[in-house]
């Protein structure tokens, strides 16, 4: 019944998508634990969900909006906007040159 553990390639692919870097030990651990967890969550297949609508949100709300042009109470000053940036130059956040 147990799914065989996820391949190293599969784990690395997921890590790449998720933007995560894994150590060798983490790759190994994840390939085992991911498989175990996936095996567990398959118990949902025991439940018949034919014709059941999926729940995106439990709140009974719809059409929640704000009015265009209403006062901006949350504007950040430049000082605030950049206060946590490590690399700031010319009123901008800076990263190493991206190829175009």
């Amino acid at each position: 019944m147990a799914t065989k553990k996820l391949s190293r390639e599969a784990v690395l692919h997921l890590a790449k998508l998720a933007g995560l870097t894994l150590t060798d030990a983490e790759i190994e651990k994840n390939s085992v634990q991911l498989s175990e967890t996936i095996d567990y969550i398959k118990n949902l297949d025991e439940l018949d969900t034919e014709g059941i609508e999926p729940t995106n949100s439990v709140v009974d709300l719809s059409n929640v909006t704000f009015e265009d042009g209403e006062k901006n109470e949350r504007a950040l000053t430049s000082e605030e906007a950049f206060s946590n940036g490590k690399n700031v130059k010319d009123n901008a956040f800076v990263v190493g040159r991206i190829m175009q």
């Binding site: 784990v11 997921l14 890590a15 995560l20 983490e26 994840n30 634990q33 991911l34 996936i38």
Partner: peptide, 9 residues
């Protein structure tokens, strides 16, 4: 990381 991995999967 572990959680992000399963969420991605």
């Amino acid at each position: 990381k572990r959680r992000g991995m399963l969420g991605t999967y």
